[in-house]
Design a protein around this nucleic acid. Structure first.
Lengths: 346, 346
DNA sequence: ATTAGCACTTAAGCATTGAGAGTGCTAACT
DNA sequence: AGTTAGCACTCTCAATGCTTAAGTGCTAAT
């Protein structure tokens, strides 16, 4: 990047711009035609050869136009992050309209996130993704235990992030609703405000104490707690496959298979999003910059939804590396803000 | 079907059998080779021409082999339903193994169903689908209302089918937990055992009564009820797209697009499953037998999971019309039984 | 009723060809 | 010295024609 003069940069941007808009490798002639450099194609050719040598461009085969490499995109993305493009009013209005439609879902996080992914994919024409926060990092606000059948109880769990989860656990038939109330009361007074990570740790310590082991009711209660507080929270929502398959980038059966495997696994995407969730602001991961198998030659635009230190989720877009980064970043940034506002404004 | 003698039937079955195993149109020569009829290819040719005339077979183009029509598959499927194929021990063991792995999820219906779809698609190599019952038909077992924040309450709802759902509703800040308890108590005593369909109807009638309109607390309570009891229950789980894309039937980009649109919409599939959920036992819908746009040339094998009159869900398989119906039916039937056992055994 | 034989049809694979787009290099130009 | 025109070269892609293989329908013989 050091020995990259202003003119070369401009050419690089032009190539990327063109390739984003038209899915064909771009040659020197096209650059001179579509972008007024006042230079001949031969000169552009020389510059493009230099850019290729520096690793910003590549040729699919000798004598086709050039295509940006991941490095090229990276350079481009970094430059627009610094700049901060502004967007047309129309696009902003579409965004606002979609958000308004989602506002009625603010009481149901899962549904809100899942619908948000649909908006994301509609707006961007790429995959929309959203993830609720991992359980370890969320803080317990309140827990309720409801006796359900002879040997079952429902755990209802409120977190500071506004998540509500329920699950059924098996309990000793001897335990009554009163007992459960007492246990819940204990848990609330003891752990409310702590993250689940901490809670699990402290519970483990408590349970190893001698006196607890002896008292059968308490030990039963403890087993209830242990089961009640283990929640595999983080849930991933993905949509827009149909949208993505319209792109020329996914005309290839092999790529489609790869993508659909990635979507169905979820595991890989969750891991990646988890990694990116800690940072703040919009993150861009381009193609091979992520080391996940099956996500090569895909790009991710991700933003955590956080307010202070309270993280309520992650939203993002997944698409081919040949992506309209500026637009995608704009959409993700605003969607993250919207979700944050929605879930924090309580 | 009347004027279809035993020999013609055998040939029809042979053609279907062969086509299911090898995805190429089957010609008369192949029939004589793979299945020992003791007849020459010319004779088979004549029979196949007859079968085509009757609408059981079709030719993709003059002078290619023949392919079963939807009607042909229908004939075949009806015959195996009557027969009842038995399966190898190995396959039964694989099934049993997968089921055992799922047993630990019996307390979490949604997760159970969603994992079941994965098993279904693994076993069949087609799409696995599962749906929890529609809210109208489920019966309320118990309702709990938990005050949550100043103007919010969590509704926790238990049904006789073993479903547990929660949602957040907005409430008047004046309403206390005590009030909510009273409302919940009223709802439980009044409506426990009724289906949500009935409940909504009765609530509507109650609310129109004069005296209730006057009392402000009761009217507030009623508005709580109304919101609390409206649940869009029916949830659809689908998986196995990656699996299906390995099939030669989905080598075509257009079909893939169609399929993924169907999967993302869910709406269409839900409607179709809803229709089939009422009947009992395994249902087979072949290709154009369903009138849903986007599901043409796909087949569905579906079975409700019911015990007595209590329906706990629907499971099924979606695949190309060129499907191993016998196997798919076997898998669906047993999976439905398993799910029923899992959720009814309480 | 069955079958052998044959002419006919069609898809699919293969090599050939020509057009088109793009490149790199060299030599001329400013 | 930077820029450009010109040109030979490369590679893809679409079209073409040819051949092969599989399958059919029909007719005449068994």
């Amino acid at each position: 990047m050091e020995n990259l003069n202003e003119r070369s940069k401009k050419v690089l941007y032009a190539v990327i711009q063109s390739y984003i808009n038209y899915p064909d490798p771009v040659g020197s002639r096209i650059v001179t035609k579509r972008y007024a450099f006042g230079l001949s194609s031969a000169t552009i050719r020389n510059i493009m050869a230099d850019l290729e040598e520096m690793g910003f461009l590549a040729q699919p085969h000798t004598s086709s136009g050039r295509v940006p490499t991941d490095l090229g995109y990276r350079f481009y993305v970094d430059s627009i992050t610094a700049g901060g493009d502004s967007y047309s009013n129309i696009e902003i209005e579409i965004l606002q309209g979609l958000y308004r439609r989602l506002e009625i879902l603010k009481n149901n996080i899962d549904l809100l996130l899942s619908e948000t992914t649909k908006s994301l994919s509609m707006l961007s024409h790429y995959l929309g993704v959203a993830m609720s926060p991992a359980s370890d990092m969320t803080t317990l606000s309140r827990i309720n235990l409801l006796k359900y059948q002879a040997n079952k109880a429902a755990v209802v769990l409120f977190t500071d992030e506004g998540l509500i989860k329920n699950k059924v656990i098996s309990v000793d038939p001897e335990i009554s609703q009163k007992d459960l109330n007492r246990i819940a009361h204990y848990l609330n007074s003891e752990f409310s405000g702590s993250t689940f990570d901490e809670i699990r740790l402290r519970l483990l310590r408590e349970m190893s104490k001698e006196k607890i082991k002896c008292d059968s009711l308490i030990s039963k209660a403890m087993s209830v707690c242990k089961e009640a507080l283990y929640f595999p929270f983080n849930e991933l929502f993905v949509s827009g496959l149909a949208e993505v398959l319209e792109l020329p980038d996914f005309a290839d059966l092999k790529r489609i298979r790869e993508l659909s495997r990635a979507i169905e696994d979820k595991h890989v995407i969750i891991m990646l999003l988890d990694k990116l969730a800690d940072s703040k602001g919009v993150q861009v991961v381009i193609g091979s910059e992520n080391s996940m198998e099956g996500l090569k030659d895909l790009s991710l635009i991700v933003s955590p939804c956080r307010e202070g230190d309270r993280q309520v989720g992650v939203v993002g877009i997944i698409g081919p590396t040949r992506m309209n980064y500026a637009k995608a970043m704009y959409i993700v940034e605003n969607t993250a803000k919207f979700i944050t506002r929605m879930l924090a404004g309580r």
